[in-house]
Design a protein around this nucleic acid. Structure first.
Lengths: 186, 186
DNA sequence: AAATATACTTACTACTAAGTAAAAAACAAA
DNA sequence: TTTGTTTTTTACTTAGTAGTAAGTATATTT
């Protein structure tokens, strides 16, 4: 695959995660990469095309991460910890997660992009609920309500706190994430 | 105060809460109100001006709500329940909350708007933490971690789940909110 | 060597955005 | 009824936006 294409995807993702979908333009990318506007259209005929590709890439990345953790026999706690670490890293890099960046703009996205985004959110929540359920049965986690509810609370907390920490500025994010994990301790 | 001005503020808020800050235009407002583009500039010289006013209005609305609840001797549970009801209503109206709409776009906002938004988030989190702490001491609530942490988890959950429910579509939001409250039961 | 595909650039169209200056209309008070 | 103020429209500018058509140099295939 083309290096330029890869760079466009990477830069596009970063722009979405810092400025948001409706605030970034092809010019932001072309200027940064030192190419012309039309060169981006060569790889991604339309903006919706680009964003859909970015979401698809992220879905794949997530699937690979989960597969990798399972094959390396990560236990439930280690897997959840690895997932939370993605958010700690995002915060350090002053970026939001892709879901937290695109979800607020979902109404303004193309239908095919909406579909991919839904697929991604569904996938994450299903994985989280499954992990929590399995961990609870094995005594790794302890929590009162349903695994689905708990998955939603944990994911929501991670997504929104990343947005809010950009507003508040200070916020000890790493510590906050730790308290989410601690809450599950048996 | 002018009726047109009030209508612009209301419509602007709704547009931010449905499409987002960077996706709505003065034309969206002028078309809906049957006035001209320039008429909006008469009341709000710039877009940043309008958005800042919208945030300020919401801060005031929140302050009034809290004052009102205190003066009517709402207990901690009733106050939290009333706060959660705002989000259930938002979900019913297929809108995000203002914080959840503007926070992801904070980098693209004018500095004065950023300041007001921070003020709003600070205020809500302080109030929530205060309420949780007081309620815990009185035995109305029960939770393990600090009131500040719990306030952040609850607020994040409400904000992000509103965004995610717009992506997922189905989601039993009312029930989800109930589970957040149930979690605090002693 | 000729044909074709790749990876672009140049130069444009069509449109939308925010914002402005000046004129006109609407409304009040004298 | 005149005068002044507030509100709104007309008509515009400036500065973008996504997207396209046509061309070009270079590499690859036939």
């Amino acid at each position: 695959m083309s290096v330029t294409r890869e760079k466009i995807l990477e830069l596009g993702e970063n722009l979405i995660r810092t400025k948001g979908y409706n605030a970034f333009s092809y010019q932001d990318i072309s200027t940064e990469l030192g190419i012309k506007n039309a060169a981006i259209h060569y790889y991604f005929p339309s903006k919706k095309n680009l964003v859909t590709s970015i979401v698809k890439t992220n879905i794949q990345r997530f699937e690979e991460m989960v597969e990798n953790m399972e094959s390396r026999n990560f236990d439930e706690w280690q897997q959840l910890d690895a997932f939370v670490k993605i958010y700690v890293k995002s915060r350090r890099e002053k970026k939001k997660c892709l879901v937290g960046s695109l979800s607020p703009d979902v109404k303004t996205l193309d239908e095919s992009t909406q579909k991919e985004l839904k697929k991604m959110v569904d996938m994450i929540l299903r994985w989280l609920a499954f992990l929590l359920e399995r961990g609870k049965n094995k005594g790794v986690f302890a929590f009162a309500d349903s695994a689905e509810s708990k998955a939603m609370v944990i994911f929501s907390s991670l997504v929104a706190s990343l947005q809010l920490s950009a507003v508040l500025g200070n916020l000890d994010y790493k510590n906050y994430c730790q308290s989410i994990l601690d809450d599950l301790r048996p």
